[in-house]
Write a protein that binds this DNA or RNA. Structure first.
Length: 712
DNA sequence: GCACTGACCGTTTTT
DNA sequence: CGGTCAGTGC
């Protein structure tokens, strides 16, 4: 990237007042603009702590923080750095979710929730969904917990509350789901538990129903900046509006072409209609792409032009290059993996591109580095999580270092979740999902029978489960062993709650582990020493994370100490916490990840694999129709624009699914980006249909392209 | 209360 | 094919 800012970038940086929409295409220096703008605001006299920047991921927030602090005037004397950074006001840079947690911590009681709420995760949600369905006696065949969660999530994303959902229900099934939703929500509320969608939804409700709260929160900032605005859902839109409507100093940055989260409630309309929502808004377009070589940009532009609903823009490549993206076609998915891995091996051994002599010299001159490729320069991107399997196997066989980004995260592991459940109970013993989780783990004599009776009693008395254990009232008829277990558990948790304020956080975690004899439990459960060691290490990591958190936050000796704060941090943080994803990407290894996980990243060499109908436009999206396919196209666009130097698109002619192998069709996006499909938007259809794939197979792909088009 | 077994069933992405 | 879950036997 050239030094300094180009005129468009400067325009975006220097426009400090009023609504501003920055349409920033892929690789156009968006992050740079955002951080420079923050610095510019401060330079112009805005107090740093009057600025709020909102991002979607923890990682983006961290990155922005780091870059922005590099740009801020460095007037600090090099004395006591810690004390200094504490009192020096800084811009607030946080994710939507942690922003909402902080707002809810102040006001949630107005919505009838207990102040000490805890945040539950996906599998807690599942168990809550299950019990809600049990309560209304919905047969499992009609609606499964996962289906219910899907409905609930969709409702919440559209700000639909249980009564509305019941009103809207047309089919019996909807009705069932709606009444389960009501149960689910009531149960969570009673237990003082909020799920992930609630963080946003409840904040929105606060703003809408309590204007004083909205004004109060809005009054904390004079300038608001929202990154990845194309990903805002309804609640986020309302929250942003509520915060910015007073001063109107709202800058949103995003790229409608990279909106890939509609399924999670994101509405592109927010960025498409920004001018309508804020009529005095200024619009700045960033279209100079500094990332990718021109042939890659050509593909990207041609592809995305097939989408109808978008802000018209066209990436202009800054880096002119010759290497066209390659398309390779293999017999099946295992050959696809073999071929890609062999290619990578070649790349690593012989330097990028297999360049030599003069070409290599030129590369060095143009790019300021040798064509030498390191594993971390390479990424394999795919649509679905089953795809990486074959690649992992091949990479392992070839003894190449790789990291699978995403997948099971640290905080999803069973043992870690157990520990977290205990900690959540310290913060909020009414948290029923957590209490149920550890009720008999490690085993303390409370079997299924006892558990069932305890829950029944809680429902009968209409109190949280914890009250049944702790209120001193008669326990239901359970075995003596169960009774002893219940009392022991109750006393232990009450003891922790008393010690929490006076005990350092990591000590507290250790105490929990030793009080419940968790290590012994691990030893009992996992005889295999390797397994046991891994799991012990995992809970050790929780202690470390606690220690890290405490040293970052500073100790707290009132209330429940740092326990609640720690839990908030973990729940809203990017699940693979600070060191994980970051370190993984820094480790010199080939990155394997989904297209969704790749947003915002870039790699010199990108392999976009599985370019087939039913995978890249995913079958489900194809079935759903044009709008869904448009999102798949954006996904492909995101993948293509991750590549700096070389892009390789690959597909398999047959693919095994559940044991059976089936023929595939090349992704329509291959035809589109190579100019072999007619773009109805530009009637300049290109003649001369070439094979999109240079594979060795005889199959006529172009005839298929024709027949596909005929079907439209 | 727990470990083992076989039947069944599924297609996406995740803050 | 591989994961999940209910059901069985200790």
């Amino acid at each position: 990237m050239p030094p300094g800012l180009n005129p468009a970038q400067q325009d975006a940086v220097k426009t400090l007042k009023g609504p501003l929409l920055v349409l920033a295409g892929a690789g156009t220096g968006k992050t740079r603009v955002v951080t420079h703008r923050i610095a510019e605001l401060i330079r112009s006299g805005v107090k740093p702590d009057r600025i709020l920047a909102v991002t979607f991921t923890r990682k983006a927030a961290g990155e922005m923080q780091e870059r922005a602090s590099g740009l801020l005037p460095k007037k600090r004397k090099r004395t006591n750095k810690q004390a200094e950074s504490k009192k020096e006001p800084r811009p607030e840079i946080s994710t939507f979710h942690s922003l909402c947690v902080r707002i809810l911590r102040r006001h949630i009681s107005k919505l009838g929730y207990p102040e000490r709420f805890t945040i539950c995760d996906r599998s807690d949600q599942e168990s809550q969904a299950r019990s809600a369905l049990r309560e209304i006696r919905a047969p499992n065949a009609v609606i499964k917990p996962a289906d219910l969660l899907g409905c609930i999530s969709r409702w919440k994303m559209g700000s639909v509350l249980p009564p509305d959902a019941i009103g809207l229900a047309e089919t019996d099934r909807d009705h069932l789901a709606a009444s389960a939703y009501r149960r689910y929500q009531n149960n969570l509320k009673k237990a003082g538990v909020v799920d992930f969608d609630d963080l946003l939804l409840l904040t929105e409700q606060l703003f809408v129903n309590f204007p004083t709260v909205r004004r109060d929160e809005a009054g904390r900032f004079d300038h608001i900046l929202v990154d990845e605005y194309q990903d805002t859902n309804h609640s986020q839109y309302e929250i942003v509006r509520g915060l910015a409507m007073g001063h109107r100093n709202l800058c949103v940055v995003g790229d409608d072409d990279q909106s890939i989260y509609a399924w999670r409630g994101a509405e592109v309309t927010h960025i498409l209609r920004f001018k309508e929502h804020w009529p005095d808004a200024k619009v700045v377009r960033l279209e100079d792409n500094y990332r990718s070589q021109s042939p890659i940009i050509d593909y990207a532009n041609t592809l995305i032009a097939f989408n109808k609903e978008r802000h018209e823009k066209r990436l202009v490549p800054f880096r002119i290059g010759q290497a066209k993206p390659r398309i390779i076609q293999m017999k099946d998915e295992s050959e696809e993996a073999q071929r890609v891995v062999a290619d990578i091996q070649q790349l690593l051994e012989h330097g990028g591109w297999g360049l030599s002599g003069e070409a290599r010299e030129r590369f060095l001159q143009e790019n300021g580095r040798d064509a030498q490729v390191r594993p971390s320069d390479i990424a394999i991107l795919f649509r679905t999580n089953e795809q990486p399997r074959a690649f992992e196997a091949e990479l392992r066989a070839a003894n190449l270092p790789y990291v699978l980004i995403g997948g099971m995260s640290f905080y999803d592991r069973r043992e870690v979740r157990d520990v977290m459940a205990y900690l959540k109970l310290i913060a909020n013993p009414d948290d029923e999902p957590s209490l149920l989780r550890i009720l008999n783990c490690p085993p303390r004599g409370i079997g299924d029978g006892a558990r069932k009776r305890l829950v029944e009693t809680a429902v009968e008395r209409a109190v949280p489960l914890w009250h049944v254990l702790s209120s001193g009232r008669e326990l239901p008829q359970i075995t003596d062993a169960a009774r002893r277990g219940v009392y022991e558990l109750r006393d232990t948790i009450e003891g922790w709650r008393q010690q929490a304020a006076s005990t350092p956080l990591p000590k507290m975690v250790e105490r929990v582990l030793s009080d419940v004899r968790y290590h012994a439990e691990l030893a009992r459960l996992y005889q295999d020493p390797n397994d046991r060691e891994a799991r012990t290490a995992a809970i050790e990591e929780v202690v470390n994370a606690a220690a890290d958190f405490e040293s970052k936050q500073g100790a707290k000796t009132d209330g429940l100490g740092l326990v609640p704060d720690f839990l908030d941090e973990i729940a809203t943080g990017d699940r693979s916490d600070s060191d994980d994803k970051e370190n993984q990407l820094n480790r010199d290894a080939i990155a394997l990840m989904t297209l969704h996980a790749a947003k915002g990243l870039e790699f010199p060499h990108v392999y976009l694999v599985g370019m087939e109908e039913t995978i890249l436009p995913h079958k489900r999206s194809i079935d759903m129709g044009e709008v869904a396919v448009a999102e798949e196209r954006r996904l492909a666009y995101v993948g293509v624009t991750r590549a700096r130097d070389r892009l390789t698109l690959s597909m398999a002619l047959t693919r095994r699914k559940w044991g059976k192998s089936r023929d595939t069709l090349p992704s329509r996006f291959l035809y589109e980006m190579t100019g072999q499909a007619d773009n109805p938007r530009y009637m300049e259809s290109k003649r001369g249909k070439k094979e999109p794939a240079k594979g060795t197979h005889k199959r006529s792909t172009s005839s298929k392209a024709k027949s596909r088009k005929a079907n439209r």
